[in-house]
Design a protein around this nucleic acid. Structure first.
Lengths: 274, 274
DNA sequence: CTGATATCCTTACGCCATAAAGTGTTCGAT
DNA sequence: ATCGAACACTTTATGGCGTAAGGATATCAG
């Protein structure tokens, strides 16, 4: 399920996202009538994150979040306009755990590498964030903070804003795409109860039965598989074969992108400054 | 909704995917009892693609596909094991419209560019393909053909198989990620009835109200927005502002990646061949 | 103490995938 | 020519989903 941000009332959503800020303790009409709230937006968001972390986005429902808090699904609607807004709040809250500063003393290259690695690890700690659509940004404080953090690094390259826009896009697409592969692999494994290895073995056997002339029809694919296979897992290696491949793709891809940024920097420096 | 491939019986799924091949007209027990089938796997897959193209993956249900064929949802289960397998079949069928050969006479760079552009356009013609998980490949004939086609281009770089594996990953992540932004933007627009421009204007106004000190807190973001904005749409320009930005990111990112591949080629050539 | 208000629950609606069982058609075998 | 097996397809039912509507109850302002 891809989730779109901000469909409801803009003011209501944005107030919730930035709620820490605007309540200067002044405009709080505290001491109202009615029973004391047993829940809070914070508690609901935390419960939502807990559910999504543990069971995945597919298992996130108003019912499951309510249950975790000992309430029914409908109880949540007092605090949150709907599921869409809850996911927005969860997303921005999760982003709060990203670092907000990177050491630039070793050059922007290593800072970008750290940023990419942190974002990759973050995405795998909360894989459901990869299912929040980027087309309609959530516009929460931590999303903006994360962006500002990356820009503090990238502006030290000396590139102009137009070039940086594209580079930000490339970096995001790449990190999210690479992380998505691992996240989906894990989700598939827990959802179906079949590990990547088992799944592949079972399919590969059947495939050669159903398509006996596979090797003649797809020679380069076979070559890629046989020659290009990673070495067997070394001592400290973690995760499945597919996960290690994804990590290798991540590292190699990052190198490619850093090389490309460097080329752009050199190209701009060679141009007349005005 | 992210869809996982191949959860069901492997033989049944793979037989359906490769069904054109294995029916050598010999093992067909044609002329059975019972009423003649009014539907066919082909017709169901075509109807599914039509629904997904027109209404998006979210609107694809066994009911909607059945309705389009004048049947109930359950009628489809005679031909297809379930929705998952139907999506697999739709995916592989759609891939059939990708080119299977690229002209290499102008060098691998321009061939890769053509491939990326074709894949980008394909993904926007059938945006739902971006929601089919890549963690558990569908393993259909056209998926393999598409891969073999790309490999025919990439092996002419002279890179070894291990390096190519990573580069294939980078290319796929990038093209899919860039296309996803546009696809989600369009989906959000039709799903919510609000264009990107309208949405942004409405949000931006409210945001400055809710967060009056935005400019001081996120100076680089503001700088990126004000300096880095694309020029206004020229005569022949198509799509929304966000779409044109995404296309610019796509072009710029492709350049970055091509530069990176070139660097890898140079690096491998500099190494002792054995 | 009363009435307004806020929290929370129950019920209900219309979606979804699909399991199970029923209906009616069409053939092969007798 | 007829009967029963096989098959296509429908109906019904189960257990999920988000959330609208309305009811019950707790708490405070007056």
């Amino acid at each position: 399920m891809t989730v779109f941000a901000g469909q409801g009332d803009a003011r209501r959503s944005l107030s919730l996202l930035w709620r820490a800020e605007e309540s200067d303790a002044a405009d709080r009409p505290r001491a109202t009538r009615g029973p004391k709230p047993a829940l809070s937006v914070e508690a609901i968001v935390a419960a939502g994150i807990a559910v999504a972390d543990a069971e995945g986005m597919a298992a996130l429902s108003m019912r499951t979040v309510g249950e975790r808090l000992g309430r029914t699904a409908m109880a949540l609607y007092t605090y949150v306009p709907g599921k869409t807004e809850l996911v927005d709040l969860m997303y921005d809250q999760a982003l709060a755990e990203l670092p907000t500063d990177y050491d630039l003393s070793a050059g922007w290259q290593s800072a970008v590498t750290s940023w990419a690695t942190d974002t990759w690890e973050f995405s795998l700690r909360h894989p459901w964030v990869l299912q929040v659509s980027q087309a309609r940004p959530v516009l929460g404080p931590h999303e903006y903070t994360a962006m500002e953090t990356l820009l503090r690094v990238l502006y030290t390259t000396g590139l102009d804003s137009a070039a940086l826009r594209r580079i930000v896009g490339v970096l995001f697409h790449f990190v999210r795409g690479a992380a998505r592969t691992v996240a989906e692999s894990r989700e598939a494994a827990t959802a179906t109860g079949v590990t990547d290895e088992d799944w592949w073995h079972s399919r590969a056997g059947t495939l050669t039965e159903v398509v006996p002339d596979f090797a003649e029809r797809f020679p380069l694919l076979v070559r890629l598989e046989t020659e290009g296979a990673s070495p067997p897992p070394e001592e400290g290696a973690q995760g499945s074969y597919l996960e290690r491949e994804a990590r290798a793709t991540f590292d190699a891809g990052l190198t490619v992108i850093l090389d490309g940024i460097e080329a752009a920097v050199a190209r701009q420096a060679a141009r007349p400054p005005r």
